[in-house]
Design a protein around this nucleic acid. Structure first.
Lengths: 193, 193
DNA sequence: GAACTATACGGAGGGTGCCTCCGGTTTGTC
DNA sequence: GACAAACCGGAGGCACCCTCCGTATAGTTC
């Protein structure tokens, strides 16, 4: 559990071919299963879909979170990287656009949202890389908006993401409603003298 | 399933004494259990605590939600009734105070929050009476604030409650953080020309 | 290409929770 | 006191979680 031990990828020999294959099969099956049966799909169901024993699934992914992470982390990172193009836009617009993308994504992945946001203000644990990506993309946007005096200075990215994440988790029926709620909240983020 | 049938309380004979007793025992046990073992306590555990067979529990409360409602609905209604004294305060302050009370309560009852808010914008289902109480208390406060031009006119109580509920569900570690996020969101609710 | 071993597989099994069903018991009534 | 309606409670079937370990296989060495 110490952070000083040698990273496994430098000491361990490469995984066996069958192990890698099964890992991929499980992730693929999980992605499908989460998509069309909801994110509370049982791990046994996923193992069945992947044509893999339950034991194998558990060896690769000791917890449900670990699997969730493997399924979604890549997508979050893509989304964050895609935020690079926002740098050209005006500070406020860029921030708003980023937040909207994030919410749109999270809203479709309730399970991810719930788990990921649990770790937003904790430093350790899973989803560390997602958290890092989120910060790399969001921090500059927020700071720029604050320096341009279009966003209130008395807050930080952690709060913004938590607020926005809370909104993303709202179970709305009407389509435009979440956007409107988000708009209200973002108005609260604006600078006022 | 039709809404035209006679309400049960007008046709059915009063419950038997033992049934009422057990009902109360289960609610009491559930309240305790949810309080000190979290709201995911198993129904069997609650039945054990209540010294009641699992079958009895299920007869009185066919679903987990039904039990949750029996445990918490009274509290929500109390909270809403207690909002009457806010009528004397300035419109904006009254609205803010109400929202703060609501969030403070919901934050301690994550399970309730999650379930209740699922029904905020649906008309049927459980938690109907909670919903009614919420509206009776909140609607006048919001409308008064809107008429006084201190709250934005382009929203309604449903949105406000959903926004606030989303925030209440945020799992924060630092104590003041949720209040601050709420403050930001409420700023977004203010009137601007 | 055969022998060997670290690595990985997979499913049986024990534990828990969900929910239903129905034989037996209790309550309220006549 | 007797009777029926209402109610009780737990056994049992099912699904899921997770662990453990005997068996199979990939990769390595000669």
């Amino acid at each position: 559990m110490s952070s000083t031990e040698t990273p496994p990828e430098l000491t361990a020999r490469p995984k066996r071919a069958d192990a890698r294959r099964n890992y991929e099969k499980v992730v693929a099956a999980a992605r499908e299963a989460f998509a069309d049966r909801g994110s509370s799909t049982s791990l046994e169901e996923i193992a069945r879909r992947a044509n893999v024993g339950i034991g194998t699934l558990y060896r690769h992914f000791p917890t449900r979170q670990a699997l969730l992470e493997a399924v979604y982390v890549g997508e979050v990172e893509d989304l964050c990287r895609s935020a690079a193009d926002l740098a050209e836009q005006p500070p406020w617009d860029a921030l708003v656009a980023f937040v909207h993308r994030l919410v749109a994504y999270l809203a479709t992945k309730q399970a991810l949202a719930a788990e990921l946001l649990d770790y937003v203000d904790r430093d350790a644990g899973l989803f560390k890389s997602s958290r890092a990506a989120l910060w790399a993309a969001g921090e500059p946007l927020l700071r720029r908006a604050q320096e341009a005096r279009v966003a209130r200075p008395d807050t930080d990215l952690s709060e913004v993401i938590q607020m926005v994440g809370g909104i993303a988790k709202i179970p709305t029926t009407e389509p435009g409603q979440m956007d409107h709620i988000l708009e209200i909240a973002l108005d609260g983020l604006r600078y006022r003298e």
